[in-house]
Design a protein around this nucleic acid. Structure first.
Lengths: 356, 356
DNA sequence: ATGAAAGCGCTAACAG
DNA sequence: CTGTTAGCGCTTTCAT
């Protein structure tokens, strides 16, 4: 069943069917109705491949993520998909699973399907691959790691704001020995978070000794291992993690070792994945809205689509971050005498979102 | 840049280029090499849309889920994607977000893109929509809810095995008042789990009073609400949840109310989403392997693809379930006297996977 | 306002 | 073994 059959049955030309279906206003309402009637009766659906072939537009946006199973992404993918449906786009989702081969095949698949744009959320991509995409004038949007190339949109995350709030919150609770569990430092995003932490500490005159930074890997397992790294001789009373997964793993290990969060150890995460609020205790964390991120990325792509020229200047977008108070932080325990330390839980509950 | 340009530069016909690219063995190695050289030099990628148009195969599999953000799905999507890459397929991921309109648009998009098969993981789909797909002879695979129609593959989940193990585990820990938090009962999968629970209780002579079944909605929020429903007059000492999200919400609420899991209340989940092991305490749950599920679904689709006839008989697949012991269950507290009750944690740790 | 026909990039007969 | 050519299903000039 194709457009010709519809044309035959509606006794019009294929051109008219095409026009009717595409709601071109110049077609006679009578004819249009006749066409739609046949279309509905036969349950005809236009062939997108054929349309794409002739129009040169696939109406597909590529979405490259590191791993779909990373809780950070599903929210983004869902929002992106919602937007895609609204605008009659499809998404081509690929994951690199931290494998250069997969990254390469990702790009190849995008090109072969002739995507109209690609959002890269993988925290890092080889330049040579990028070239293949740029070469074909595919609109691109990067988060955080975008190169400074015209025609490429970048979403800059303001890590500093949220992390400063986290550090100051901890300081206000009288913590002075605050450790940071970093992510893999070859990732710009991980490095930026670490830098933001150092800067925030210095701002308020707190020194950051080398042992106050331990390197994790942004996984829950890494978070579990990280706890042992920080519970050495000079154990901190608070720890800021480079992402929520790390914080979750760390809290889980703390539980195993009988360390009570937040009484013995305050924990702050980063990202605010949906799960954070369901942790025990609910995780205080720096929010970087996944919904907003997806919206910005989609908008950036839509904005570049249809532009003929390689898009004159690069576009920059910014996404802010801020602390969300929950219950994984408390007043620093009093050093000697083990006085019954207070939990900030109740307070935090009332003050929730006070930084928003 | 198209196949003609390659042909021109390699001084062969387009047919030869096509053959070379598709690795048809009959082409002269000399020519093939010449073709590949040009292809690499120009960075040529065949246009999938054109290929699909002429071959009638899109090499796209549709994947319909309820919500991408439901932690149950990412693992499935990732596995499905891995398999897809291996077999040179793409996945078209759509979510119904529990909205009939979205469900409908899902099907429409699948058909418009001419997918070669669809895996439906939404726990329920309207028959009329199904018809559109069947009408076009699109291979279909359902989980659990599949209709008994020839040409449709079904993956049947054996809920009974896992839930029986859960109930018997609890009984062995001397629990007699065990409550079940069901999911939305209009879902076959939720109903089947509830039935399995009832049957398992009866098998060992434990009665299930009406108040021992409360209805949740398979969300964390629902799990939180469920706790209040069960902590009435005759509070149970153990609760089995219809899915892990419910269990996670319930544990979170228990924490808020000062109810200690597992000392005061044993909790068992269902699904074994990855998060379960990172809960505090790690959640004992019935595993229904998401990886296996995805593999079976993919295989079912691959198996039906290329078949000319509407696939003679329907294919049935089965997926088993089993209990994974972790640390959210313990000996039932002694009723009077509040004797220091033992945690089964340590035991469970050693006995882990004993049911596998 | 409508129709005839060219052509998007590729594959697959068919001929040679 | 290679080339010529006819479509795949649709959109879009260009005539009418």
């Amino acid at each position: 069943m194709d457009i010709r059959e519809i044309a035959r049955r509606a006794k019009v030309s294929t051109a008219t069917v095409s026009r009717a279906i595409n709601r071109i206003p110049t077609v006679d309402p009578q004819l249009a109705k006749r066409v739609w009637k046949v279309v509905d009766e036969l349950g005809y659906y236009p062939n997108t491949q054929a349309r794409a072939l002739v129009s040169g537009k696939s109406r597909i946006f590529g979405l490259v993520v590191s791993e779909i199973t990373n809780p950070f992404f599903p929210e983004i993918v869902q929002t992106f998909e919602n937007l895609a449906v609204q605008h009659n786009y499809e998404i081509l989702l690929t994951s690199t699973v931290h494998d250069p081969k997969r990254m390469e095949s990702s790009v190849r698949r995008m090109i072969e399907r002739r995507v109209d744009g690609v959002a890269i959320l993988t925290f890092g991509m080889e330049d040579s691959l990028l070239e293949h995409l740029r070469f074909r004038n595919v609109p691109l949007v990067f988060v955080d790691v975008g190169p400074d190339i015209p025609g490429v949109s970048n979403i800059r995350i303001n890590y500093q704001n949220g992390i400063r709030q986290a550090v100051q919150h901890l300081a206000a609770l009288r913590h002075t020995k605050i450790t940071f569990v970093a992510g893999p430092l070859h990732l710009k995003s991980a490095l930026a978070r670490q830098d933001a932490f150092k800067a925030s500490m210095e701002e308020i005159g707190l020194e950051v000794a080398p042992e106050q930074i331990v390197v994790g890997d942004h996984t829950m397992e890494g978070g579990m291992r990280a706890l042992d790294l920080i519970t050495g001789a000079r154990r901190p009373t608070a720890v800021v993690c480079s992402n929520d997964m790390t914080a979750i793993g760390l809290m889980r290990e703390a539980y195993d070792q009988g360390i009570n969060v937040p009484r013995d150890l305050s924990v702050v995460g980063f990202d605010d994945i949906r799960l954070a609020q369901f942790m025990i205790p609910p995780l205080t964390t720096v929010q970087m809205s996944q919904t907003e991120l997806a919206q910005i990325a989609f908008k950036a792509l839509m904005n570049d689509v249809g532009r003929e020229l390689p898009a004159q200047g690069k576009s920059e977008y910014e996404l802010n971050t801020h602390l969300v108070l929950r219950r994984s932080t408390a007043l620093a325990p009093v050093h000697n005498g083990r006085i019954k330390s207070q939990r900030s839980g109740a307070m935090a509950k009332k003050a929730q979102n006070s930084y928003e």
